[in-house]
Design a protein around this nucleic acid. Structure first.
Length: 877
RNA sequence: GGGCGGAUAGCUCAGCUGGAAGAGCGCAGCCCUUACAAGGCUGAGGUCGCAGGAUCGAAACCUGCUCCGCCCACCA
């Protein structure tokens, strides 16, 4: 009876990812599938990678963002676009420098022992040694970047781009050098931008100090030594008579002169309404000082210790000084009282050292005019931010933007292209290195500082494409299509690219910005090395396969919510990959006699149904992807493949495949199986590139790789509602019988006997597919429109039809009676609810007619069911 | 001080434009039925954070509140 067929054991019954992944990735790369062609006539699609730290290694955040970018790139590539995923790495200034400094420290050395040149050679060596790691790992992830275009932010081309940008901004007056109060990290020995300062709530002491006749509060008593004034609000009547006067007051270091000024920055409601002004160590005070011409006294140095100007406290650590000075003031009776106080302190984002505001000379970008343009672009549709909620965040920051401090006292990075003449002191900013002063010919000294690492990152979308040259790449791929990144670098990176891109290219750097959430551990904690809760993506990939891992990330990528990752979550999708593998195994081992060239016979009902479901799945996946709803796209494929294809269609198809008596049926089922599975593989490929390629190659197919195959389009014939309706009836009938089996605890081995009292509308359908019912429900099924219900039978209801399953000798009828009674009660309650609803005049008269009708139909159904259940009671006892 | 997000089954989360709640895992029962036990079938389990409101109708919209999380901010 059963036709001889290829044994499924020729293909392993478990999907083994490692071998497949190792085979396909190098093959794709070798064949040049990742390459984009700037001269191509196809429509362009471009994503620039958020460049990972060159010396870093792949963490969950990378894996997540890169997976999404690869999904998009692969979809577009299959969809006929000239797709470029532009890869690259970042020199990551301070981060990398700190790592190498730490290495040196382990050898008992400091960077100053080596000197600048030797230190930089050392960093480059470290870059050369570790720089390939993350690239290899991205390949492991399946990333289809055009590696022939790999860029590094310190490549010669990019150095040139950075200099060009710097010089142009300088010439336009948008870059300037200024003495200003900055955020200084005494440990890292560098200035930090406002964004690089983190805020943390800490407990502190609020010390009320007597300033002669005045009293004021401060949390930083040590800065008292740098006070050059006190300020009150201009409208504060309590202190009006002091304004403009200079007070001679007793202090820890004898008597000092303090001027009283009136300034709007003072809040009369806070504390005593008097504030000490320390222009050298507080940003607000700096501004106040500037407005009133108060001198700057620097009492804390770059090393975090008190300077000579601090008199007897010179050389003391700033916090030790704080303690000591309070002691001394207490001894002198200068302290009125001390209150506990909780406030935010600024910390260095890298080392968490308390940042010291200090006055120093730094380079700045006047970003306000650039921000205005970037703001406009996000509001007139040139740049679309998805999810749109982030536009708010972007706006607020752009609107309140302050000058961007771009110089850093580091060695690793883009050195500032400014030279100072040692003879006449003139400043020259230049695209090329200067050796002698253009004005006087004197010896030049280049600014020792480097640029904030985000300066070069801000040029990334066009610097990687060849700017400042007018390249084919720029013309083809700029503006890029979408930027995919996490919300944590909207200000650092997205905003800067928007500003700089619009400024230099006169066009937005990306049309869409897709902002995704963060990947956290299973408990929702941010992963960090210190917490020891880091989940290594490579370990996950090794354990469950790259495809399963990628699919997990996509499936959890719901907008606006962080992702919690754990082994169990990946395991589920590993099983999904395995399910697909076995579904393909079933198809592949039953292709004997299949003619891929042959004219396909018209599909039967199940075939039409599964094709209609496929049509819907393709449509839904495309819609979801267009809106960056990765989780919905993944969920749609998952449900379609597992439920519709495996649970139903394959089970139905087996009947035809295993029987030799209807070769035409076998043929058409084979055809449907192949076309549906092949299309599903293409639909899934961007998410699970490896397993889909492997299986696609084994199936009858056209073309050399699934990567080059077309992304599925919903069929021209559209959905097939009639097939869906009919299959729904059959599925319900099967489920009804299985339901009875399950409820009654009847063994699957037991073949049931069922009589279907078919309603007139469904009789023909049920008769035609009675074989399908018998197989799937494991029952002998008789269709009889005039059947009467046998004694000792269970009732199933499918629309207007009824199914009677004989129970005699199979179940405990008394128990069944109880169950029925319970069910009758439940349905009775549902009927009461619906009746109540329909009886309410507000509903009956005001709800739309079709809703009322629907409720009526529902009630009728419920009542019919109730009556049948009541009747059933008589049939089980 | 401003802004944003979250609160839905035991757990982790979907639920887009309002029409009596879904998935995965876990749990219970029956099955090694010739693609897959990493599987199949069946089932139990939810006053959708709380309180109001507009609506014929709310998990979804409005208001207030509670509890988490995040971002921004020059109240010393």
């Amino acid at each position: 009876m059963t036709q001889a067929r290829q044994s499924p054991t020729t293909i392993p019954d478990r999907y083994e990812p490692v071998a497949v992944e190792e085979r396909w990735y190098p093959e794709w790369e070798k064949r040049g599938y990742f390459r984009a062609d700037p001269e191509s006539a196809k429509p362009p699609y471009c994503i620039v990678i958020p460049p990972p730290n060159v010396t870093g290694s792949l963490h969950m955040g990378h894996a997540f963002t890169m997976t999404l970018q690869d999904v998009l790139t692969r979809v577009k590539r299959m969809d006929g676009f000239n797709a470029l995923w532009q890869p690259g790495t970042d020199h990551a200034g301070i981060a990398t420098q700190v790592v190498v400094e730490r290495q040196l420290a382990a050898e008992g050395k400091t960077k100053d022992d080596l000197g600048r040149e030797a230190f930089l050679r050392r960093v480059w060596a470290w870059k050369d040694e570790s720089g390939g790691t993350i690239i290899r790992q991205l390949k492991k992830l399946g990333a289809s970047c055009d590696w022939s275009r790999l860029r590094f932010t310190l490549d010669d081309d990019l150095v040139r781009a950075v200099r060009e940008a710097f010089v142009r901004l300088y010439d336009e007056g948008l870059i300037y050098r200024d003495d200003y109060i900055v955020n200084w990290c005494p440990r890292c020995q560098t200035v930090l931008s406002d964004l690089e300062v983190e805020r943390e709530e800490r407990d502190a002491e609020f010390v009320y100090i007597k300033y002669g006749p005045l009293t004021l509060g401060t949390v930083r008593p040590e800065t008292k030594l740098g006070d050059t004034g006190v300020a009150v609000h201009p409208g504060d009547p309590r202190y009006a008579h002091y304004v403009g006067r200079t007070l001679r007051i007793p202090s820890v270091d004898g008597e000092i002169d303090i001027r009283v000024v009136a300034d709007e920055a003072v809040d009369p409601e806070f504390g005593t309404g008097v504030v000490k002004v320390t222009p050298g160590h507080d940003p607000v005070d700096f501004e106040i000082g500037k407005r009133h011409g108060l001198p700057i006294r620097t009492v804390i140095g770059f090393d975090g210790r008190m300077t000579a100007a601090a008199g007897k406290y010179a050389g003391m650590d700033r916090f030790e000084c704080r303690r000591k000075i309070v002691e001394d003031m207490q001894a002198l009776g200068l302290i009125e009282r001390i209150e506990p106080y909780r406030h935010a302190v600024g910390l260095c984002y890298r080392c968490k050292t308390v940042v010291e505001p200090l006055v120093s000379k730094q380079w700045y970008v006047r970003v306000k005019p650039l921000a205005d343009v970037a703001l406009a672009a996000a509001h007139d549709g040139r740049i679309t931010i998805v999810p749109s909620g982030w536009l708010n965040t972007y706006d607020q920051w752009m609107q309140n933007i302050r000058p961007w401090c771009i110089s850093r006292q580091l060695w690793w990075g883009h050195r500032i292209p400014a030279w100072y003449c040692e003879r006449d002191g003139s400043v020259h900013v230049s695209r090329t290195d200067l050796t002698s002063c253009p004005s006087c010919g004197g010896p030049m000294r280049q600014d020792p500082d480097v640029l904030d690492t985000w300066f070069s990152s801000g040029l990334w979308p066009f610097s990687t494409l060849g700017w400042p040259d007018d390249t084919a790449e720029l013309r083809t791929f700029y503006p890029t299509s979408v930027l995919v990144t996490g919300f944590d670098i909207i200000f650092f990176w997205v905003a800067r690219m928007a500003m700089l891109g619009l400024h230099f290219m006169k066009a937005e750097p990306f049309r869409h910005v897709y902002i995704h959430a963060l990947v956290r551990d299973a408990e929702g904690q941010k992963m960090s090395k210190s917490k020891g809760n880091v989940v290594d993506p490579l370990a996950i990939m090794g354990k469950y396969g790259t495809d399963a891992f990628r699919f997990t990330l996509a499936a959890f990528a719901a907008q606006g919510r962080d992702i919690r990752i754990s082994d169990e979550r990946v395991e589920g999708y590993r099983n999904f990959a395995n399910k697909l593998w076995n579904a393909a195994r079933l198809v592949l081992s039953n292709l004997e006699g299949y003619d891929p060239e042959g004219e396909p016979p018209p599909a039967g009902l199940p075939g039409r149904w599964i094709e209609s479901r496929l049509h819907a799945a393709i449509h839904d996946v495309r819609t979801a992807l267009d809106a960056y709803r990765f989780n919905e796209a993944a969920g749609t494929i998952y449900q379609f493949l597992w439920s519709d294809v495996c649970d139903w269609y394959l089970e139905i198809a087996k009947t035809a495949l295993y029987r030799a008596d209807d070769p035409a049926e076998r043929q058409r089922v084979q055809h449907t199986l192949v076309t549906v599975l092949e299309a599903t593989l293409r639909l899934l490929h961007p998410f699970m590139p490896f397993i889909t390629e492997e299986l696609w190659q084994r199936l009858p197919h056209e073309g050399e790789s699934i990567m080059l195959a077309a992304y599925p389009r919903a069929s021209r014939t559209g959905p097939d509602p009639e097939a869906e309706r009919q299959m729904a009836v059959l599925i319900q009938a099967v489920t009804a019988i299985r339901n009875i089996r399950g409820e009654m605890r009847i063994s699957p081995a037991q073949t049931l006997a069922a009589v279907v009292k078919a309603a007139p509308g469904d009789e023909a359908l049920l008769r035609e597919h009675v074989g399908l019912l018998q197989t799937l429900a494991r029952a002998r099924v008789t269709i009889d429109p005039r059947a009467t219900r046998p004694r000792a039978s269970a009732l199933g209801v499918v629309g207007e039809s009824e199914i009677y399953v004989e129970l005699e000798g199979l179940v405990d009828l008394a128990a069944e009676r109880q169950r029925l009674e319970k069910e009758i009660k439940r349905v009775g309650e549902a009927i009461a609810f619906t009746r109540g609803k329909l009886a309410r005049p507000d509903f009956a008269e005001r709800a739309p007619a079709e809703i009322v009708d629907k409720e009526r139909d529902k009630l009728a159904e419920q009542e019919a069911l109730h009556a049948k259940l009541v009747a059933s009671l008589g049939w089980v006892g």
